[in-house]
């Protein structure tokens, strides 16, 4: 049973052309026809380089960005078509943790105010004032992330980076959501603190059966956290598979290059890290055909002309590449 299903998501932004004067606008296709689903209690990892559109997918799912086309089914409702009270009710079932708690936590609010905010915004409790119920629910949420009730009256700047991210997680948990978008939740943290936060997120999932969309550029973190993984390149989902399959038998040449370029923390296997020439192209000038063909080591003539179809290479393993036939 899937909690969230994304079908043919499409989102374009219009950006000013060049850097000087003029009125020209370019279309930047941030997300171009992405489809996937997240089952109950599972983690779907979304991995890709900067500018590939992975955060835009997360923002569309939360309706922080309004998608241009496509369906976002959450609990049987299409989020893309909801508004007003219905949208607010649907949003109470989902939450988000952003990368940098420094900027996602208001410096002028106490931890009590920060963690209780989703309750007020979702109209679960009175808009203003504090009562015993709010106090208790905040205390429970803080305890769940390893903080104490004595932290409630403090401000975000009084905490370390890891603790701040715990506060952000407590805020995400307070409405008992069924689905949480984790947008690079540990990228701003040091390794030892990152491990604490990742363990916490896994414990919470085990206890509550909540589903995660885990967005990251770090392959090791994605592999550790996810059951299924989607790889994005320039707005397109190029491969989508169970995590073990993807990491052991990557099919798409981009996935293969991405895995080969990630430094393995083991000096016994020496890698040649320069596997892929060139830089990712600008998403404003997307190459025709398969978007990866200018950098692809095994590009065929057909790759320049037509976008590859989605090929099913086994249960739950989808790859968008001309090299494969189902």
């Amino acid at each position: 049973m899937s909690v969230v299903r994304v079908e043919g998501l499409y989102k374009a932004f219009f950006v000013k052309r060049g850097s000087g004067w003029g009125w020209g606008k370019d279309e930047l296709r941030a997300v171009d026809g992405v489809s996937f689903s997240v089952a109950q209690g599972e983690t779907f990892g979304l991995v890709g380089e900067s500018g590939c559109g992975k955060s835009t997918v997360g923002n569309c799912l939360l309706r922080l960005t309004i998608p241009d086309q496509g369906r976002l089914v959450f609990h049987g409702q299409d989020l893309a078509r909801l508004s007003g009270r219905a949208l607010r009710r649907a949003r109470s079932g989902m939450a988000v943790v952003f990368q940098d708690p420094q900027s996602s936590l208001d410096p002028r609010m106490t931890v009590r105010g920060l963690v209780a905010a989703p309750l007020r915004v979702g109209r679960h409790v009175r808009r203003f004032g504090t009562d015993l119920e709010v106090e208790q629910r905040v205390a429970v949420a803080l305890r769940e992330v390893g903080l104490g009730a004595e932290h409630m009256s403090r401000y975000a700047h009084e905490f370390s980076g890891g603790q701040r991210q715990r506060i952000a997680i407590a805020r995400a948990l307070i409405t008992n959501p069924a689905f949480i978008v984790l947008d690079e939740p540990t990228s701003a943290l040091d390794v030892s603190v990152q491990a604490q936060v990742l363990n916490l997120l896994q414990d919470i999932q085990k206890r509550r059966g909540v589903s995660y969309l885990f967005i990251s550029h770090d392959l090791t973190v994605i592999r550790h956290m996810s059951r299924r993984v989607g790889v994005m390149y320039l707005g397109v989902l190029v491969e989508n598979a169970m995590a073990d399959n993807l990491f052991l038998r990557p099919l798409h040449p981009y996935t293969q290059a991405l895995l080969a370029a990630a430094p393995i923390p083991d000096p016994r296997t020496r890698q040649n890290l320069a596997v892929l020439p060139g830089d990712p192209p600008s998403p404003v000038r997307v190459p025709p055909g398969c978007r990866f063909h200018p950098r692809c080591p095994s590009a065929l003539p057909v790759c320049k002309q037509s976008a590859p179809p989605r090929v099913y290479m086994g249960p739950e393993h989808v790859v968008a590449c001309h090299l494969y036939k189902s």
């Binding site: 603790q163 990152q194 491990a195 083991d266």
Partner: peptide
């Protein structure tokens, strides 16, 4: 030892080892 144990994703392990506390 803690720093090396805290690296995720080498093998599929259930729990990462962590270093308690902060700097």
């Amino acid at each position: 030892q803690g720093l090396i144990a805290a690296i995720p994703g080498r093998e599929r392990i259930q729990q990462l080892l962590t270093i308690p506390g902060t700097v």
